[in-house]
Design a binder for these strands. Structure first.
Lengths: 210, 210, 210, 210
DNA sequence: AATGAATGAGCCTTCATTCAT
DNA sequence: AATGAATGAAGGCTCATTCAT
């Protein structure tokens, strides 16, 4: 039943299917046939809409990145002050809608692929860059520039590490414990930085932190 | 040039070649032919010595794990006291002989494969378990049991995160900065733990920490 | 030249080609490439339609068995009385459309493969069982049950022996002499059985036997 | 431990191993490595002694044929009169030392291979020819020449059929029932022939027949 | 006499991609 | 818009055979 205006629907179905299949397989070793079947169409149609398997992968990666960006903006909108905004940025990484084994596993696969695939690399760099500048921008208001970069590096590494451990089911922590670990790292680093800046943390903020 | 006693030589050459090729490719998408060629032999011989591609991968993974274990023991032998031993354990992860892009990338690939491959999973669990118990054993002498586990989790996640960033060349830090980041995390957590235990850190020990 | 409804055509072509190639080779040592080439398509398409070489072999065997079953039914439909039906069953085995060197040779290969291949074994057992019960059912009306089974065994062995000799071109007899040999065996056994039962054979029936 | 005069021992071990492996596999799909391993030596040595896999197969086939010829002569030596000699010839085919599943299966494989392999064909023709002339020679003393050939054909087909059924475990009869079936066929054919020659069978002989 | 070492050739199977309809 | 049909290219694995020792 050929219909008009199917393109966005088909493309979306394929992207979801791609993420699901990659997540299930735990690697990019999935066939176009698998993806197309899960999306309820023929491989020929999948190629019609994306041109190649690689493009499908990139679209799926872009989809994940875009969703992450949107979540970050949403979380940030509700946050007040730099410390809350930092927590919001972290929370966006562990949002319950995306911090599911299959999405995380899929994300990890793309992450790894970015080592050698220029397209994937470019997308990943956008994400990495945004995360870093978002963190630094807010950290900058709480500590000096050198510290801000150092802390941002630590936070980013921690997030990646927690992601990979989640993908491997090696993570015995739930979503809140996971986020808490990162927030706690921030608290400590900022506390240290604070002391180094002779600018003790506001106790009231500490009281509300996880 | 048929000689006797070639088996260990060939096996070793294949393992090195496997790690190199996987590292170069950034994934397990390498052919037996590539590996065999780099190791200077035919694919048939590679199969003769390892039986299957999978076994070759597992042997390479085991090789990396074994080397890591040996380094850990060596570092630990020179360490005095729990704090130094913790630093030693961390240092073993970032030893200059192994913390090279290709080895790290290869490690990451195995790490990812462990998601679904039982053999890889088993090997990884041994590594993960050892790292955790090594950390906890020494942390236990500096803080309570709950903290020890929590800190070990954080350290492990941090190491993983730094590894993945190293593999992606996203890590602008050198080996010492990388290690320093983890040591610093330990210092902070133990300092916090110390305060929480009303057991302030010994200033003399702090003086020797990196 | 992609058309729709090709599946039955392709499958049939592959089955015929399989039988031809096996018959020509005299064993199952034929490659998928040979079969596919003879059937006028790529090996990939052959796999697309049958999944594996083994399935192709089984389909070919099933094809031969089915054809034999159909011939048996056709011959039986025209037969009157148990003695004629016995002859009909035997005639079905030596039908000129199938008692050709290549089909016989192919049949023999499957027969032999049934020794260790469960799928082939199952198919063969169906054939063997049907032949035996068909024979016994009609023999039962001419002699006692023990004799019926014994005679059926002899007839079946004789058919198999004549088949193998046909496959090896060791059989200097034509189709009618071959059938005659089995019919003659039946006559003798039933004559003997008749005498043993004090029930001499009806001379009129003998007159119509070949 | 290289020894002199090993050649016949090695060759024999390889021949036995070949028969065993083929019998176990139910086809000629056995590797030189399997055979060599079972014979307790390297594949290189197997090639050294036989030159090629094909030659090993032919040697094994020749071995079976030779053993059969020897048994026939032995059985014949003890037989008195044409009828006993015919029974002796048949008995040689079902000798307990050789009528075992693996030998029979191996025999069948060679039999089948003779379809297209000239060497195997030549060997088989020798066997077939000897059996036929042995049978005809003795039958000739009990019936006319045409009958003699016809009966020899029937007996040979029956033996082949019983062999193949033995190889497939489709034969529910033991060795004596199997032989009895062929002897019985002979009795019937000779009885018929006798009647046709107005030369009734000697009742005393019948009394001793199985 | 004996073997470990080594490989070329080949086979089954998979899969991304294209095309006619 | 959609798909069944079709294939070239490649990859993992096996194996008979050779060779230096």
């Amino acid at each position: 039943m050929p219909k008009i205006g199917m393109e966005p629907i088909r493309r979306n179905a394929l992207i979801e299917a791609t993420i699901d299949e990659i997540g299930k397989a735990g690697s990019l070793n999935v066939t176009v046939a698998q993806i197309a079947r899960r999306a309820g169409m023929s491989t020929a149609l999948a190629h019609h809409y994306f041109g190649s398997k690689d493009q499908m992968f990139l679209a799926a990666m872009r989809h994940i990145m875009t969703a992450f960006g949107a979540r970050t903006r949403a979380e940030l909108a509700a946050a007040r002050g730099p410390r809350e905004r930092l927590n919001a940025i972290i929370a966006a990484s562990f949002d319950e809608r995306e911090f599911r084994p299959e999405v995380v596993s899929s994300w990890l696969s793309f992450y790894v692929q970015a080592q050698n695939n220029p397209g994937a690399r470019r997308l990943l760099n956008v994400y990495t860059g945004r995360l870093h500048s978002n963190l630094v921008f807010n950290l900058r208001q709480l500590t000096n520039i050198a510290n801000a970069h150092a802390i941002a590096n630590g936070v980013a590494a921690l997030i990646d590490g927690l992601y990979i451990r989640q993908a491997l089911h090696n993570n015995r922590m739930d979503r809140f414990q996971t986020m808490g670990l990162v927030w706690d790292y921030l608290d400590l680093k900022l506390g240290q930085a604070g002391r180094m800046m002779k600018d003790p943390l506001d106790p009231s903020r500490l009281a509300t932190s996880p």
